[in-house]
Design a protein around this nucleic acid. Structure first.
Lengths: 186, 186
DNA sequence: CTCAAACATGTCAACTAATACATGTTTATT
DNA sequence: AATAAACATGTATTAGTTGACATGTTTGAG
């Protein structure tokens, strides 16, 4: 679908940036819902520039180091707006190796299955803590017009997702344990 | 990582199947957490057979139609078990075009943003209904040893995820509306 | 008997993405 | 002055995935 281009256009719409800056944004603010390495970003910027959706001016840092500061064009803004206003389908069900493993877990010992679940739970809890820490940076809900409002909504979504994952894993662990206990009764 | 091979091995460990049968499984029982088209499955089966993880016997349906019935080998079972007992990392944050759209939604009118959220909510609600319908097929929690137990756990996970998505979208809609109301007050 | 749907197996081109390869500068610390 | 970390930009190779291309049989409904 070529969504990467809109991610880049969206970022450049907020602020002029170099490819290096964009790469950092993907590692930080976008990391919750999109990812791209610099090896993908630089060629994409080149294509975008060829199609006049972005333009750049070369600047010099220090004595010789060249950097390309990219900015979005009017045409680019039009493209971005068009995409931003269109309905998108719900994301395709994401591949999840752990669920696959759980799905086939009837072939391993019950105790082992519980260990796998606990391990997964720990990892999600750790991530949830990290997200909750990020939430403390907002002492109040930002105004809707600000880009921080979008940041806030997306962060709430991430927390929601992790909480739900933890709940599910706990349910699974309890169901497995309950059943294991029953079995040892007989 | 080559997770596809384990998905196929896991399915063949339950029952002998043709490539066509496997394709249907990916469309149904695995669709919640893994996907693969037949164009990926047939070549993978070939590789798996070359590596002696699976084997097949050719059968004839009707008069001439050949089909290959695949089964897992002892070596294949060993490989599967090894994977099944290993800890896996939590799934990489899935790409989500809608969240990207929401992240940049400060560039569209507030009402439009609410429409996008509502549209997304409807889609998730529809999917949730579908999942809840599937849940009614289980009148009781299946025994842990059965493969139906894994099916059940994974289904609970999917329902959990969709409920959480709906909750988050409702939160977003309410925050947007509240803010819109405040604004019109002034 | 006709026709559509399901059964059945494969390949190819294009795209997306990740990792490694490749190179060099600037800045801040020690 | 040395050095490590961050700045800065690219390419090449490989793996994974999708959609289209390609072909043909069998079964069940009307």
């Amino acid at each position: 679908m070529g969504v990467l281009r809109y991610a880049i256009l969206g970022l450049l719409n907020r602020q002029d940036m170099t490819g290096y800056d964009l790469t950092k944004e993907f590692q930080t603010s976008l990391s919750e819902f999109w990812s791209a390495k610099h090896s993908q970003i630089y060629p994409e910027l080149k294509t975008l520039a060829e199609n006049h959706l972005v333009e750049f001016k070369t600047e010099i840092t220090g004595n010789v180091l060249e950097k390309k500061l990219y900015s979005i064009t009017e045409f680019g803004k039009k493209e971005l707006l068009e995409w931003a206003e269109n309905y998108t389908k719900i994301p395709p069900l994401p591949k999840d190796e752990f669920k696959l493993q759980l799905f086939f877990s009837d072939c391993i010992p019950a105790q082992q299955r519980i260990q796998l679940l606990k391990n997964q739970l720990e990892q999600h809890q750790k991530w949830l803590e990290h997200l909750n820490h990020n939430l403390t940076k907002f002492d109040t809900v930002p105004p809707t017009k600000e880009s921080e409002f979008s940041d806030y909504l997306v962060l709430l979504g991430a927390i929601n997702r992790e909480e739900s994952s933890c709940n599910w894993l706990n349910t699974c662990i309890n169901l497995c344990k309950k059943r294991a206990a029953k079995k040892s009764d007989t």
